[in-house]
Design a protein around this nucleic acid. Sequence first.
DNA 1: GTCGACACCGTCACCGTTCACCTCTTCACG
DNA 2: CGTGAAGAGGTGAACGGTGACGGTGTCGAC
Lengths: 348, 348
Amino acid sequence: MTVSTGQQQGQSSGKRVPTIYDVARQAGVSHQTVSRLLKGGSGIRPENRERIERVLKELDYRPNLAARSLATNRSRRIGAMAYEMLEIGPSKIIQGASNAAREAGYLLDVVSLDPRSRNDIEVAVSLLAQQDLAGILAFAPTDHLVEVVGDSRFSVPVYVETESDDSVPGHPASPNSDGVRQLVDHLFQLGHRRFFHISGPPAWLSARNRSVAYESALADRGLASLGTLAGDWSAASGYDGAMRMPGELGVTAIVAANDQMALGVLRALAEQGRAVPDEMSVVGMDDLPEARFYSPPLTTVQLDFENEGRLAVKRLLGLIGDEDALVTPVPAPPRLVARLSSGPVAAG
Amino acid sequence: MTVSTGQQQGQSSGKRVPTIYDVARQAGVSHQTVSRLLKGGSGIRPENRERIERVLKELDYRPNLAARSLATNRSRRIGAMAYEMLEIGPSKIIQGASNAAREAGYLLDVVSLDPRSRNDIEVAVSLLAQQDLAGILAFAPTDHLVEVVGDSRFSVPVYVETESDDSVPGHPASPNSDGVRQLVDHLFQLGHRRFFHISGPPAWLSARNRSVAYESALADRGLASLGTLAGDWSAASGYDGAMRMPGELGVTAIVAANDQMALGVLRALAEQGRAVPDEMSVVGMDDLPEARFYSPPLTTVQLDFENEGRLAVKRLLGLIGDEDALVTPVPAPPRLVARLSSGPVAAG
DNA sequence: GTCGACACCGTCACCGTTCACCTCTTCACG
DNA sequence: CGTGAAGAGGTGAACGGTGACGGTGTCGAC
């Protein structure tokens, strides 16, 4: 996983890389015929087609994308703005997007940035504006980013992955809010009535959405949250949150907005000598692969990040007009994963 | 963090994007003069320079990179093959690389792949071969990958991030092996003599290096490992490994090749009712931000992934011949982080 | 036998840069 | 006052594709 020595692969054998002209010459046709074959392929005499294809293989011809995009004024590259690639959610989303892009014949250029830093955002935007891209994907739901991206006039379609704003009533639940609701319901059924929330940073749209969903799920049960502390998605912030949570509230269940913060909460409770789940239930969100191995194993909710990334690419391709819209991936609905960190509320 | 609505930014105001010809005409010079200014900028009369620069700004000129790279046969893009982006190590390396690339004016195209799958690798290679890239970075130290990349004749420099092969004596320690050695020494000083190893998958160079370093660190102390089980970097595999470890060996310290596997080990021991560190010490590697919140907090070793990624980019730029080699980042040496999962060996 | 339709394929111009080369000034110097 | 070198900037041709258009050859219908 780390560096040490490198090795260079040769600057190639010195031979120029073949162009359609080379192919055409060797196949005894015009370059245009080669181009045609490369394009759609119809309207070419079988014998010619075969000959060209042979030469193509022989020379190991690779189209020069720069030339192509110069001529067509289109490219097969998608820019993506991402943030916090170290978190499981974002990085899985990017991975899904990258795969979907690859399958559609595109390459994803990922620019990572800190979406709280206006400067970072502007650097990223100008970097992306320079490259010739078919479109731009912005996964980075902070208010800042939405604003800057909205301002800057890209010459290509931009798809901003805003989450549905759950504060607007009467519109389809996002996977986020659906997941939160499942967690709350689960705890409710276990008898919990006194909830506390460790949220993500309020500048993040997804954090706000999760919080709103949490409040409204409680409200639907006729309950109100006993309080919320904002973390920053990290385990450390979860730890701090749990430590700062007023003891006199009599909380019996803590809902953390992601698994890392839940881990921090678990640790804080362990240090305070409070048993989980006997004295306190803790739930997270995301279902990290590790969540199952926490102490105790964490109840959480599984989200389909991969397909959310794919979906975003498909949507962008739709905007671009690339009718490759074959199958639109539907993210799997969130799935509650009940483990040992949640249990019935203590008697009495 | 999830999708819901998207929003499109306009296909721009319909006006053609300005070229150097447009700029030249408006500034009353030839296109070549504009090009010269854009290039280095020397040898232009101040008055002309000023005029051109004004027009440049006015029209918001952006060079067409496709045209440029067609003409120069060079591009400002670096391809990177990465694997397991979900692991902290790889993703931090990529992030470091991406930042370093950006600072040097390059963009990093990341293609993620499963380096165990020959097919994946070939797809990635051909994808990268198509794009016009200034160079290619291969972070993905499996034998497979090294082999395939070695075979395929890219027309651009390729920097393969092989680790130093620690089985070759007399050559500088890689951060990996240095880190492992620190862990072993730490345990040794705590009185441990009976070690067991949960390694990464042997196809990974870094896993092999860590294993070799482990064995040789023990050998230097006149000890031998009581055994090794190979995991796959996941917490689940660490759990399995600990469960399958023969009890009769009398092991007192388990060295896992990364933090996730160590987490799995901790969980397995907890389920077996074996106290950590009283009955068994456990150490990991990588120092994930979460490691500090495991139960008990994990002793591990901190690696400077970010700078390893940067370093790789610098090296590649060196191969490319881009003399931007300003400061060469030196990855910080690995640092032992002792926490509660390791302790003195039990008396008797 | 002529004509039109159609399939196939070649020619030419163009995409926006850079590069090689040439021309025109300007100025110093003998 | 002629000469040459240096400085500034213009001209035309690549780069490797694609698109528009037009020219063949073949075949069936009249």
